[in-house]
Design a protein around this nucleic acid. Structure first.
Lengths: 367, 367
DNA sequence: TTGTATGCGTTATCAC
DNA sequence: GTGATAACGCATACAA
């Protein structure tokens, strides 16, 4: 309309041409100088930098992205930012991404495959240079097709056995193994186990670890001690009610993760079952609240931030090496963190044990 | 080097030209058809859409961004993703952003102004169409300069009195007012208050609300009942130790927020002070763990997701209206959520009250 | 060492 | 209703 060309509030973007005009050099020289190329004398570079700074020149990343066919962004798909474990992974990723000049495009998938596909498409449209998938679906045909697009990606916290991908995870089998060992040491014979979602590789590994350890320590292998579940508080609550009302309830429960364990604790409280006197509880993840004095949940710690950083590092390597090399797998060790939710088994034959509570390695809870 | 042009793993991107070639139409027609412009016959549009879909055409957002001078991305600056309140705000933002075709570029500032400035610059370089600042610094000269750049922005959860900005917040004064009223009703006369960070407008408003309410209800205005603090668990813990060891300790404490209240609870436990029998505690934010049975913290709820959505909506409006209009402020009401951490004051004169615990509106804790 | 010209993939303007 | 063409701002091959 009647909008004048140089109307003040709509000031034109300062481009590389402006710097060229101002300095008297050609645009290519500006570009080279600012990009740190070697073909330009130090004094020209200095002069160019100074002027560019002075007139407030900032390269357009859209133009650069179009030209270079790369965006200096990575996409991160997370099932749920609100899960207390997610932010730690994110921080690790962000740390190394930023360090390498990359920005992070974050997407929530809500665990929905449909949403995940839409988000992945959006990310690919944006020309992200790589993608990190945290606890995401990764076997469906559509998703494999998207993944096969050529954009590097790394799986974090969930993998698939069907495909060879870059993967960063934790030693889930051993993690659960330690937990079971501790319970065995405390005299527990019947240990309940809440499985995570059926499609979670992490949950499957933990279950495998559980079975191994139960056999190894000669605990009761009663199949009634294993309940299917997911990662929710609600499910932990309901499954625990089932456990407690069964004819031979377990003296300890290993939950699918910390959130799930919360449900277990709540259910125990609702049934007036004392923790750990009558029931020991172990979670997984060591999220922030597990350490609160009011909760004091024994759990299996994952180096979440380090894992995120490792995933991002792996992704950076993929991005920067053009030739395809074999998929890499990085597995981090876990660590059993003993707190107040575990104690000696209070079974008839060892009633005495519940008096002299042995919690040798009990962690001192910080304020 | 010897890299052949059409080397298979580096297959060329499918562009609008490919669709043009395949359909026989001109690129401009393709563009119009796909963009839903009206100047194209329905059958052409259908045909184009079908072919585009079939050959897997996806528009390059870099090119579009360059051409349109907008990125369809918004930047979100958050002090700390790991704070349990942040994800809720984020979700609200993401909801409406996605709905409007925008993606979210997320940045952690760690509460550091330096980092914040760097991140804002990065965001601006990326041509984000707008920025949402959650609980961020917003008065320093550098930041004001960046904000003045012309890119629309909305402040969420922290504002500045010095400048007129778009702002979405909660009715902090009234929120604390209700909390104090409830404590007064329960017979508390000496209520401790932990202030949030000095540079937080939210904290300042809450303090103002506290002072008002104390006066209104005729509570003890003893200045020793107000401690400076921040939002951390640690500070809540330390301040509470101080409170409890003073000559005339408060019978109730209002913490700066829920995390802070956690510290209060931990300190009370450490000193064997029963909550709520000997000490009532109120938090702020109603984060997820406040509702856990083990914590059961009375707190002031903010509609965080709605607030995030409102901020994003406001931002969308700004982006889509070229002319500057007056800054808007949206204030959401708060809601006092009664749980197990508050009870009747156990002061000498009202010892009876502690027997018939009146918790009229006590929320039934979900499993 | 510096300058010129071209293309990256879109959309908008205009002509047909 | 449809088509040709000119930007958008940058990086780079190649010429000077």
């Amino acid at each position: 309309m009647g909008r004048k060309p140089n109307q003040s509030p709509l000031r034109r973007r300062i481009t590389i041409h402006d710097v060229a005009k101002e300095t008297g050099f050609a645009v290519s020289t500006i570009s080279n100088a600012l990009a740190g190329k070697s073909h330009v004398s130090e004094e020209t570079r200095a002069r160019i930098q100074e002027i560019a700074e002075r007139i407030g020149y900032r390269a357009s990343s859209a133009a650069r992205s179009l030209r270079l066919r790369q965006s200096l962004m990575i996409g991160v798909l997370v099932a749920d930012v609100a899960n207390p474990a997610s932010p730690d992974f994110l921080r690790g990723i962000e740390d190394v991404a930023t360090q390498n000049g990359y920005d992070v495009l974050l997407c929530n998938t809500d665990g929905s495959e449909k949403r995940q596909i839409a988000q992945m498409r959006a990310l690919l449209d944006r020309n992200v240079d790589g993608i990190i998938l945290i606890s995401q679906h990764c076997s469906s045909p559509e998703i494999r097709a998207l993944l096969a697009d050529g954009t590097p990606y790394v799986l974090l916290q969930r993998r698939t056995s069907l495909h060879a991908d870059d993967y960063v995870g934790a030693d889930n089998v051993n993690g659960i193994g330690e937990a079971v060992a501790e319970l065995a040491r405390l005299g527990h014979r019947r240990v309940g186990f809440i499985r995570g979602p059926a499609d979670s590789s992490t949950a499957a590994e933990r279950y495998e670890g559980f079975c191994n350890a139960v056999a190894q320590h000669g605990l009761d292998p009663d199949p009634a001690l294993v309940h299917d579940g997911d990662y929710s508080v609600e499910r932990g609550y309901r499954v625990t009610l089932d456990f407690l009302s069964s004819s031979r309830p377990p003296s300890a429960i290993i939950a699918s993760n910390d959130m799930n364990a919360l449900g277990v604790l709540d259910a125990a409280a609702a049934k007036n079952v004392q923790v750990p006197e009558q029931l020991s509880v172990i979670g997984y993840d060591n999220v922030i609240f597990a350490g609160f004095a009011r909760i004091s949940l024994t759990t299996i710690d994952l180096p979440k931030r380090e894992m995120g950083a490792a995933a991002a590092t792996l992704l950076m390597k993929r991005i920067n090496s053009r030739r395809r090399s074999a998929p890499k797998t990085v597995i981090f060790p876990t660590r059993l963190v003993l707190r107040g939710s575990t104690g000696p088994a209070a079974e008839p034959q060892s009633a005495a044990a519940s008096h002299n509570r042995i919690r040798s390695k009990q962690e001192k809870d910080r304020p």
